[in-house]
């Protein structure tokens, strides 16, 4: 593995929400080309907030650099092209009326012509094995298909880094393994936020653990899973915050 220059470098990142909650309290993190890092942590430990800083959706104090570019206003278009962010809830990500149009949304924003955008979108759908669904409406898809279409929408922008926020939520086991093998075949550097230790064990080369807005441990996936008792059978806890009425 070529561990010379990190594709993501974060130094001393702090972020406080408008209501005063300290969400990130000095995060230092590096992601290198070719590696896959699993990001563990309890609900509310700041994982998603952290991820939203990587492409400038949120901006805090400290330094975030993506492929050598500091994340600031004038770099946002380039940064968002380099980092592909797959959100936890596919329904939020697939907002266009048909699968093909959704996947073409990114390329169109990048300034591709209509014909070219369609071509790129088709190629991305082929990459995730769902070209046959091009003209379907997103709400007709299964959770696994939605996730792969969301991934295609990101791949169509030809990013150098993939960031996935809880990709296995709502997926049944067969869809999970399908997603895992798909991700394994993609060459990009990956950061995967997950609660799913099995999924991380299958894919990640390294793991970090988030607690109270900072990274408190780093090591191999096995080490982290062992140390924090992140064992799926007893700790199968899922984020229901967006889907469960109290």
């Amino acid at each position: 593995m070529s561990e010379r220059k990190p594709v993501i470098e974060v130094r001393g990142l702090r972020f406080r929400y408008a209501d005063g909650t300290m969400a990130l309290d000095g995060v230092d993190f590096r992601l290198y080309a070719g590696e896959t890092v699993a990001l563990f942590g309890r609900n509310g430990s700041g994982k998603t907030t952290f991820v939203h800083h990587l492409n400038g959706l949120l901006r805090g104090e400290g330094e975030v650099t993506v492929c050598g570019l500091p994340v600031k206003k004038e770099n946002l278009p380039t940064v968002r092209r380099k980092i592909g962010l797959v959100f936890q809830d596919s329904d939020e990500q697939l907002f266009m009326p048909t699968v093909l149009e959704d996947v073409a949304f990114g390329p169109l924003n990048l300034g591709f012509g209509a014909a070219e955008a369609i071509e790129v979108a088709r190629a991305a759908l082929r990459e995730v094995g769902l070209e046959s669904l091009a003209n379907k409406a997103p709400y007709h898809l299964s959770a696994g298909e939605k996730k792969r279409v969301a991934l295609a929408g990101i791949l169509a922008m030809q990013p150098e880094i993939l960031v996935l926020d809880e990709p296995t939520t709502f997926l049944d086991p067969p869809s999970q393994s399908q997603l895992a093998s798909l991700l394994r075949s993609l060459p990009q550097a990956k950061l995967i936020v997950t609660h799913d230790a099995n999924f991380a064990l299958a894919l990640a080369t390294r793991a970090v653990f988030f607690e109270k807005g900072k990274i408190v441990a780093e090591g191999s996936v096995e080490e982290i899973v062992e140390r924090f008792q992140w064992i799926p059978r007893t700790l199968r806890e899922r984020e229901f915050t967006t889907h469960q009425a109290e």
């Binding site: 278009p77 939020e92 907002f95 209509a114 922008m157």
Partner: peptide, 20 residues
């Protein structure tokens, strides 16, 4: 808000050219 974040993450800047 989530949808809007997802749009921004894919380079949305106010206007996406529509297909002809």
């Amino acid at each position: 808000e989530g949808i809007h974040r997802a749009m921004l993450a894919r380079g949305f800047s106010g206007e996406t050219p529509a297909l002809p």
